[in-house]
């Protein structure tokens, strides 16, 4: 039983290690292939995707390290998209109110005139 468990974890570790090595190789191939890489076929596509994911991982790592050091997250010049969306919706509503106000003024002018 103990042997089975050990073999299971060993197999798990081996799979993990092989997958990790495979991923690293895919990232390096994806980086090397550059923008035209996708045309190489499905494998090249996966390599390209791995390279994009690796880029995101580096950004995430930098952000987590900065947070661990008690620093403010890096300012990437990007605002919170949800907040922007809300501001846009408020702006749209203001636009609609402006249009409605203009229509009301038109009705008043017509009634007066």
């Amino acid at each position: 039983m103990t042997d089975d468990v050990m073999r299971f974890f060993a197999a798990w570790m081996l799979t993990h290690e092989a997958a990790d090595e495979g991923l690293k190789a895919a990232v390096s191939r994806g980086d090397a292939a550059g923008p035209g890489g996708m045309s190489g076929g499905p494998d090249a596509f996966v390599d390209g995707l791995a390279a994009l994911v690796a880029e995101e991982k580096e950004k995430l790592k930098a952000a987590l390290e900065a947070r661990a050091r008690g620093e403010e997250p890096l300012d990437t010049g990007q605002r919170d998209p949800a907040l922007d969306e809300l501001r846009f919706e408020v702006g749209e509503m203001r636009g609609r109110l402006d249009a409605i106000e203009a229509q009301l003024e038109t009705i008043l002018r017509t009634l007066r005139g």
Binding site: D84, F88, A102
Partner: peptide, 28 residues
């Protein structure tokens, strides 16, 4: 007009792409 506003918002982080701002108080 609404689509132009939306487009401008979608590309708010891209200084090289734009669409006209709409004046809703003068729009029907």
């Amino acid at each position: 007009g609404r689509f132009s506003d939306r487009f401008r918002f979608d590309f708010r982080d891209d200084a090289r792409v734009t669409s006209p701002r709409v004046v809703w108080s003068r729009t029907t």
